[in-house]
Design a protein around this nucleic acid. Sequence first.
DNA 1: GTCTATAGTGTGATAGAC
DNA 2: GTCTATCACACTATAGAC
Lengths: 231, 231
Amino acid sequence: MPRMGPQERRTEQRREQRQALRERILEVSREIVKREGFASLSMRKLAEAIDYSPAALYLHFKSRGDIARALRREGHASLRDAFLAHTSIADPAARLNAMGRAYVEFGLAEPETYRLMFMEPASSAEAAAGVDDNGNGRAAESGAATLSLIADAFVELRAADRLPSRAAPVACAEGLWANLHGIVALKLNGAALPETPAAMLVELSLDAWFAPVKGTELRFSGPDRSDTSTR
Amino acid sequence: MPRMGPQERRTEQRREQRQALRERILEVSREIVKREGFASLSMRKLAEAIDYSPAALYLHFKSRGDIARALRREGHASLRDAFLAHTSIADPAARLNAMGRAYVEFGLAEPETYRLMFMEPASSAEAAAGVDDNGNGRAAESGAATLSLIADAFVELRAADRLPSRAAPVACAEGLWANLHGIVALKLNGAALPETPAAMLVELSLDAWFAPVKGTELRFSGPDRSDTSTR
DNA sequence: GTCTATAGTGTGATAGAC
DNA sequence: GTCTATCACACTATAGAC
């Protein structure tokens, strides 16, 4: 790294301060969203929380939707981390089990973040490529990474001839994802899926979508539901 | 029916007119929601569309959320009708196939109505029983009827010993529902589930959740995805 | 029952002074 | 870079005249 003169150092400090404020805005936004949901994150409320004027926000983010996009990126990174923690599991079925559970746990633990990531209405001007005012990029753009981790496991299962379905592995991956998302989404909406705890639905879904690891199957032996808590 | 005097007839006419206007409000609301989503259904816009003042609406509906509840009820009735059209199918697996397809078709054909029914955030004051300002009743209250139609089929499968999973039929029903909902929800959000058409995901999911009817399985024979259109 | 008028509150975003 | 002040809207819901 080259030595810098006083001039460069000063601009460097400015850049750091600037970046620090941006981080602070994101930090507070993250907490508000986590507590009250993105819908109730207003620029005024946010400005008051960080003790700046609303106008100051627009020096760091082009729009409210721009903040949404940043938070979504954070969320996707966090979810991907939760997945990466299990990539070391050699057996693809066991790995899928761990990742599936991690996915639903993530969604139930941070419902509002999950909502922002996966349950926001698509951009109205969807036809236009790229990104719109609300920061809706292509939803898959970030989720694709985590999806591919699931798909990888299915590819391995197929290669080992342990995938009963004849469908393409990527199709199975999307099917399982849809299943997990459905569990989270319906649970988040409150009264839906009233009978069965999420944990059990996850087990059932994983078993439905690929042959379980030997000795891992039939965790729930009887037809009666367990009394495991919903979350 | 008793003859009515002129007095009763007049009040009868009033009641009919009143009911007619209520229906008209609902009709226009339904169309606006279908086209632009419930979020953009404002009382002003609605009033202008029916050529009344905004205040007139409040004589027929307690609030905007009250309209939402009415539309939700309509939607649930419509979905239940789509299900009832298949109750005559004797074989429970074939019936589930038809109902599952009908469910996803409904969701993709009327995305905004589906959103209103199943993808709205739960009421903030959920702890309080009953209904809130936004007309969010217990989401399951109406969906329960359709869910029980799915559960019935699983009960029959279990009775015929054709349900491989040992889980409770109602748990399987909720699992399958979650799966179908996930497909619709992710497809509605635009870019998610990019590779696989919804129709194929539905087939895969149905096959995953219960033994398919003989001769019906393996519609998709190869690992490559078909080029069936997404909707 | 229906209207006009408006209260009351919120919003995102910007212009222009400093 | 930050602020004040404000634009230009939107919204639900109600009061009170007719």
